[in-house]
Design a protein around this nucleic acid. Structure first.
Length: 254
DNA sequence: ATGGCTCGTGTAACGAGA
């Protein structure tokens, strides 16, 4: 079973990229973030024609998440039931015995903004809810755009980024509290090349100079981590015309 | 240097992303 996550930065613009990528990478599950589409505009028919079932929850202009699956999807939950939030950032579903959570963690904008406080509060509530999910579902995978680079090795220039949003200590501590639930970063279960990133700024030749961050993650419960045999970032679609600024991350579960 | 891209909105700049 292959599970993937990809922040597409507008599914309206990126639907052709998603379909092309799925054709070359027929993963079983793809979690998508930043669809930026209300549900009435979601391109469900095109995705189903490609052989995927899909569930989604979106809003106008911002946020929006979806789960695409080749296998039946059951027990769908939209948003964190413990946290009142108008922003559409979470979907959970059970697929082939695995509880899959698709998450778009708030960006935070900057450490001195109100949005940063929202991000930390959101993450605390996310942790509390995942604690329950982990107890109910031993086979738990939490995939998404976390908007946090866990360590300095996940940052192209740790000195320039020190203390900034996506990298700051409180954000990293919030991510560690998810790890304390037993959730492991699938990417770090394996040897990886130095300077492996999942996002590159559109500006200043960010991708060409590999000035990136690793902020998209697949966290696995202990039972799933034990079944995981690979985790990779696919840089290929970042090279395509009109790309998303994020690359997909894929975990293989045996 | 608060710039540099890209997207949605809406049809001109502007907010937001990361």
């Amino acid at each position: 079973m292959k599970l993937a996550t990809w922040n597409v930065n507008s599914l309206n613009v990126r639907l052709p990229h998603v379909l092309k990528w799925l054709e070359a990478n027929p993963v079983d599950v793809l979690c998508v973030q930043e669809t930026k589409l209300t549900d009435d505009k979601f391109p469900a028919a095109a995705i189903e024609a490609a052989g995927y079932q899909v569930v989604y929850t979106g809003q106008k202009t911002y946020n929006g998440v979806a789960i695409l699956s080749r296998l039946p999807i059951t027990d769908v939950v939209k948003n964190n039931p413990r946290y009142e939030d108008a922003q559409q950032r979470i979907l959970a579903a059970t697929i082939d015995g695995v509880r899959v959570v698709c998450a778009y963690v708030p960006n935070g904008q900057s450490v001195d903004s109100e949005k940063y406080g929202y991000k930390l509060g959101w993450l605390a509530a996310f942790r509390d809810w995942l604690h329950e999910e982990a107890q109910q579902h031993p086979q738990l995978a939490v995939l998404g755009d976390y908007n946090i680079a866990p360590e300095d090795r996940d940052v192209h220039d740790p000195v320039a980024w020190a203390g900034q949003v996506l990298v700051s200590d409180p954000e990293r501590a919030a991510l560690l509290r998810l790890n304390e639930l037993g959730l492991k970063d699938a990417f770090r279960l394996f040897e990886q090349a130095d300077k492996s990133f999942s996002w590159w700024d559109y500006r200043q030749l960010g991708f060409r100079l590999n000035k990136g961050l690793r902020i998209d993650h697949i966290l696995l419960s202990p039972a799933l981590a034990a079944r995981c045999s690979a985790c990779v970032i696919d840089r290929e679609p970042r090279k395509w015309e009109q790309p998303s600024d994020h690359a997909p991350v894929i975990a293989t579960i045996d």
